[in-house]
Design a protein around this nucleic acid. Structure first.
Lengths: 146, 146
DNA sequence: GTACAAGCTCAAGTTAACTTGAAGTCAAGG
DNA sequence: CCTTGACTTCAAGTTAACTTGAGCTTGTAC
């Protein structure tokens, strides 16, 4: 098994399409060397990087944000444990926020089974605008604003 | 307070931009009547509908899917309790799946603080491709596939 | 040595969910 | 009556994250 991988091999191993890999390279998220022919060859470590990218995407980060994280990590060579702890902390926070929102939504759903909100319109799930409109724009009701 | 609302009033009360409301109408998610002048006037109940749309979006449905749900509900006039229960069930499922994924991601994160994955590359968070590549394409590791 | 699979670049297309802009009409207050 | 803000339509623009296609080159297996 070669120590350098072609884009096709990386695609198969990572499950990320070759076109996406080229796009990531263009955005500076991953890097490759070239054969004389111009064909890319990726260091095996790129798989870790791609794993990182995919993971971060599932957490909800944009490629832009992921790029920033990667850049910060690279600033002082190998990422330190503190780097990782900081990042892990902020991502965990993000996950927790989204989870909390989902739980609020879930509760609204189950508590509304009983009252048939949609038709009756008397429970707090419906008509949030009339309740909330005076506290600034945006559908804030399910967004954590009380 | 009038019983019919202008688009501006609806926008203020719902927190959804007027341009978005026009777009929803174009997609058939909401409806309005018109003054002789051509200006829209929305029935007050549109606020419930918009609440429903915003809610569903936060749950993770596309406008396409939301449109289908709304169409089904409307099929037999007012939504019945069974309609609501069915819908509530499928949305709850969806919420639970996403929540579960977030929890898997969260665990990977916290369990990785200790090992410094990113640099050491020996824990299960990194390099999922080499582990998983032989079970078909796609970054399946965090997606619930074991 | 010849297929043909895999790679390359570059420009353009795709999808969702809107937003923006132009050009014009309408409504309400003074 | 006149101004000003709200409204109208329609076409085009926006953003993210890619994918697709054209046209061409390279690597590999027989």
């Amino acid at each position: 098994m070669a120590n350098e991988l072609t884009i096709g091999e990386v695609a198969r191993r990572s499950g990320v399409a070759a076109s996406a890999l080229r796009y990531y390279e263009e955005r500076g998220l991953i890097a490759s060397e070239r054969w004389g022919s111009g064909h890319r060859r990726f260091p095996r470590a790129v798989l870790r990087r791609i794993a990182f990218i995919v993971f971060a995407q599932r957490v909800g980060l944009s490629l832009e944000e992921i790029g920033e994280e990667l850049a910060q990590l690279r600033e002082h060579g190998a990422p330190t444990r503190e780097d990782w702890a900081r990042l892990s902390g902020s991502w965990t926070e993000r996950i927790d926020e989204r989870t909390a929102e989902l739980q609020r939504l879930r509760e609204s759903l189950t508590s509304c089974i009983g009252c048939g909100c949609l038709s009756l319109g008397h429970c707090q799930m419906v008509n949030p605008g009339d309740r909330v409109g005076n506290r600034g724009p945006g559908p804030r009701f399910w967004l954590g604003d009380q």
